[in-house]
Nucleic acid binder design. Structure first.
Length: 218
DNA sequence: AAAACGGGGGC
DNA sequence: GCCCCAGTTTT
């Protein structure tokens, strides 16, 4: 693709994703933009299917809605509640630790900037950027495996790691698209642009795509 | 750079 | 049965 194609691509995807299933964290974000809910839901969603994540998130938030309330739950209780998300013991520990830090050092509020968010145990660049964009509506570029894969497949960036992709996008992606870019590409990635054997024939932006690294497609 | 965390679902 | 999944931390 040409760099100038990005405007057309975003425009097409904006229209197309309305008809597709939205990523779970985006769904949760739309219910009420509570940064704490976004943060915890994102932690739960790591390497875990959407429906399982949604169920676990709903159960956990029915027990506690704030860091203070959640801190009163035992680690075992959290683990039992969020089961069967992947890495559930690990995540229970992470959630407990994050709540403790939020209450003790951040007055029970989720930080609204990258630097502070990244200090939290279990929060990497992907999670931190998602909280900033969905929770605080601030410019940020959240790069997960979908964004990393598709940005390279399109030929928009040429990078080896998600972190490199984030910095490359910061250089060339128009800032007005930063917040929504992640949601558009994740939705496309889950519906059509799969890691293996993507369904290129029905992709709305196929005419702009270089298909870098795509061996077989449907 | 690679391993570890981990259960569920698709094929 | 084998492989993959909105990652991050540890070795």
């Amino acid at each position: 693709m040409k760099d100038s194609d990005i405007h057309k691509i975003v425009e097409i995807l904006r229209d197309a994703v309305k008809n597709w299933k939205q990523p779970i964290v985006t769904q949760i974000a739309e219910r009420g933009k509570d940064p704490f809910r976004i943060l915890i839901s994102t932690i739960l969603s790591l390497r875990t299917k959407d429906d399982v994540t949604a169920l676990a998130s709903e159960r956990l938030f029915s027990l506690a809605k704030t860091p203070e309330e959640m801190l009163r739950l035992g680690e075992e209780e959290i683990a039992k509640t969020i089961y069967p998300v992947g890495f559930y013991r690990n995540k229970a520990k992470t959630i407990k630790e994050i709540c403790k830090t939020l209450v003790e050092r951040y007055n029970g509020k989720v930080p609204d900037n990258l630097e502070e968010l990244l200090k939290l145990r279990g929060v990497g660049r992907k999670t931190a950027n998602l909280v900033i964009t969905l929770g605080y509506n601030k410019p940020g570029i959240c790069v997960d495996t979908h964004v990393h894969r598709i940005s390279n497949r399109l030929g928009y960036v040429k990078t080896k790691t998600p972190e490199e992709t984030e910095f490359a996008l910061r250089e060339k992606l128009p800032v007005e698209y930063w917040i929504e870019f992640n949601d558009l590409l994740v939705t496309l990635g889950q519906s059509i642009c799969h890691p293996i054997s993507p369904r290129c024939s029905m992709c709305p932006i196929k005419e702009y795509c270089d298909r870098i690294g795509v061996k077989r497609s449907r």
